[in-house]
Amino acid sequence: MVGIRILEYALTRAGFRVVNSGSQCSQQECIEAARETAADAILISSVYGMGEIDCRGFGNRCQKAGLGHVVKYVGGNLVVAAQTQDWSEITKRFQAMGFDRVYSPATRPPEVIAALRRDLAGRGVAATGG
């Protein structure tokens, strides 16, 4: 809840139009919100260690819902005891689920924002958040 508010604040300050789907958001709710608002990017924050279970199949579901082109990031305490695991392994697992970028809990918002601008520009999305 707090994490998502900080992200919302930082992204809004950077000029993005943010739709905050709140906490406890299911994949289905996330995809529906993205469709109705024609989202250019979906950012998922998960802090309780169950991200791997919650995000399973997300890329596929997005693809089926016509959201294959949408930029997808995930970040936070994505797995239980993340500090004991190799982050590059975690990244690979989430990339296989369809995420373009995977962020550790130590990531600061400016890093995400810079990447988001690059990725959106790369997909030809007009200067959102420029």
């Binding site: 139009r17 739709v19 469709r35 109705e36 608002t37 024609a38």
Partner: peptide, 9 residues
Amino acid sequence: GGTDGGDRA
């Protein structure tokens, strides 16, 4: 259909 500024297609 679509939120304001959202889906238009």
